[in-house]
């Protein structure tokens, strides 16, 4: 028996919004430590890794490890049927071929349940090595989303250059060129507005705007985003989900032909 309950359906809607543009389907691996999903996007360029810890759920029970392959388009249809303030419970029997989403209104007067067929997905899991990154940038997630959106107008690729002074995002194309520089903030009223840089070595890397823009769909999950970079290895774009876990996106830098 698997059962996981979240007080608010909003968080699950936001998680789905953060992955459904990149993935058509995904396997949710459930164990007593929580729920994990790892999948490459359809073109195998980026990797999405979602971790939801069991202690972040209002209720969590997982008697036996189960892997639930879900069509994310179908899951999105079902989640549309939940109000933001509904409690959501995900349930499945051991070895079941369906999963049930149950939504309860705050006053418990409306209860709906939606059963969805599970899929058998033959997905390979990738082992992600622990890496010490040359640069780790933390910045407001909305600011990062804005920069990715703005610079994507100029080129399909964006250069990210990080030094201890700050981080610079650049793009150039037929129209001209664009540069956005962010300095490390000295003092801020709110922690969410801070830009901070931990640098061992400066790095300059080129990334596809299209994927960075897809990652920023996770912005509603967290006020801050963390970019971890080293030469010649994939960038990690991480959004923490308060008290519940995180979503990480991996994207390899572009290389000269």
């Amino acid at each position: 028996m698997f059962e996981a309950r979240l007080i608010s359906a909003t968080i699950l809607k936001k998680i789905l919004d953060a992955i459904k543009d990149l993935l058509n389907e995904g396997t949710f691996d459930c164990s007593d430590s929580g729920i994990q999903l790892q999948a490459m996007d359809n073109s195998h360029v980026s990797l999405v890794s979602l971790t939801l810890r069991s202690d972040g759920f209002d209720k969590f029970r997982c008697d036996r490890n189960i892997s639930m392959g879900m069509n994310l388009g179908s899951m999105a249809k079902i989640l549309k049927c939940a109000n933001n303030d509904d409690t959501v419970t995900i349930k499945a029997q051991d070895n079941a071929d369906t999963v049930t989403f149950m939504f309860e209104s705050p006053n418990h007067e409306k209860v709906s349940d939606y059963e969805m067929k599970l899929m058998n997905l033959d997905q390979e899991h990738l082992g992600i090595p622990e890496t010490d990154y040359s640069c780790v940038v933390r910045m407001p997630s909305m600011e990062f989303a804005r920069i990715c959106r703005d610079l994507a107008q100029f080129s399909e690729s964006m250069l990210i250059c990080c030094t201890k002074e700050g981080v610079k995002f650049s793009a150039s194309g037929d129209v001209g060129s664009a540069n956005v520089k962010l300095a490390q903030t000295s003092s801020v009223d709110k922690e969410e507005e801070a830009v901070s840089i931990e640098m061992q070595e400066p790095v300059t890397l080129t990334f596809a705007c299209r994927y960075l823009n897809a990652f920023t769909k996770a912005s509603p999950l967290s006020g801050q985003v963390q970019l971890s970079m080293s030469a010649d290895v994939p960038l990690v774009v991480e959004y923490r989900i308060q008290d519940l876990g995180h979503i990480r996106y991996y994207l390899a830098p572009k290389i000269e032909d």
Partner: peptide
């Protein structure tokens, strides 16, 4: 510029 696949960087488990 070329875009390498992410699979090239991580080992298959």
């Amino acid at each position: 510029m070329a875009q390498p696949s992410i699979a090239a960087f991580f080992n298959t488990r």
